[in-house]
Amino acid sequence: MADEVKLTAKSFEPLDRSKNLDSEKISAPNLTFMQDAWRRLKKNKSAVIAMVILILFFIMAILSFFPSVLPHQPNAINTQYANLPPKWPGVDINGVNGTLVQGGSRINAYAQAGAASNVHFWLGTDYLGRDLLSRILTGTRISLTVAVVATLVDLLFGVTYGMFSGWKGGRVDNFMQRLIEIIMSIPTLVIVVLLMLILKPGMWSIILTIAFSSWTTMARLTRAQTLELKEQEYILAARTLGESPIKIAFKHLLPNLSSIIIIQTMFTIPSAIFFEAFLSFVGIGIPNPTASLGTLLNDGQKNFQFLPYQMWYPAIVLSIIMIAFNVFADGLRDAFDPQTKE
């Protein structure tokens, strides 16, 4: 043989241990359940847009708490300026320049009402001269508050009921489910109307009413999932180790129920908004003079033929909120539940 290869200790060089520990390993960063859902949600463009819109509405609603932010007092009656159309400062386009068509000709409603040139109502005024923009902003806040609080109450009760029923099983479960079936076969509308009659009209009775009539769906979903979960090994392990049921519920059941609960919540909120608007529209919801989207629609509808803007603006706001919630809920469902995704 020709030359021998000599291997000395110097031929070997220790690799830097911090790099390339395992060149075979291919992995993405470890994601928690929520991070994973968030990653999928971000890919869904319409859901992200809906989420941004909702955040904007919530910010506006929170801002409307501070009276100084609002252009006018939402409940201040000023009959001199009743039924004025929208007027934007410095913009001269029909529809937003304070003119309206009356008897076939276009007249300047602001001049007619004797308003100074610096008086502006961005979205016009209603039949009592209340500023529509301020009323829509506070109305949105009230509608959102009613919907969100009602949904939270519904969630608290529905989830507790469902988990208890599913966990106990047997006769207790059977009885609790029959009870739900009975409640479910009474039309929601009827429950809502009866409760509204008994409780004094106002925000809290609407919240209670909506919560009371919508908890059954949440309870059923939670119960079905709990029945499945309680057969899992980790629950069995927790029980064997003597963990108390309350702790199991909070540490093991709730985290695994969270996706169902969140999705259902997002579907309950728009229906709560709808019920609030519906009740106020019919005249048994939020009492005057408080503004909510439903009462604004009700007021606007009376004048729709002559002053369509009084109904159009609250209707648009209500519809946008509803659409955004529905689209966002759809997106969340797809994000949390990749299996059902087409």
């Binding site: 709808f274 608007a277 529209f281 629609l297 209500l318 659409i323 919630f325 529905n326």
Partner: peptide, 22 residues
């Protein structure tokens, strides 16, 4: 269908009444 689910029926009713009816 999202529009149909989101827009309350009473809003739609008033719009129909005014634009299609009147």
């Amino acid at each position: 269908s999202i529009l149909g689910i989101s827009i309350p029926s009473f809003v739609l009713a008033v719009l129909l009444q005014y634009y299609v009816g009147l």
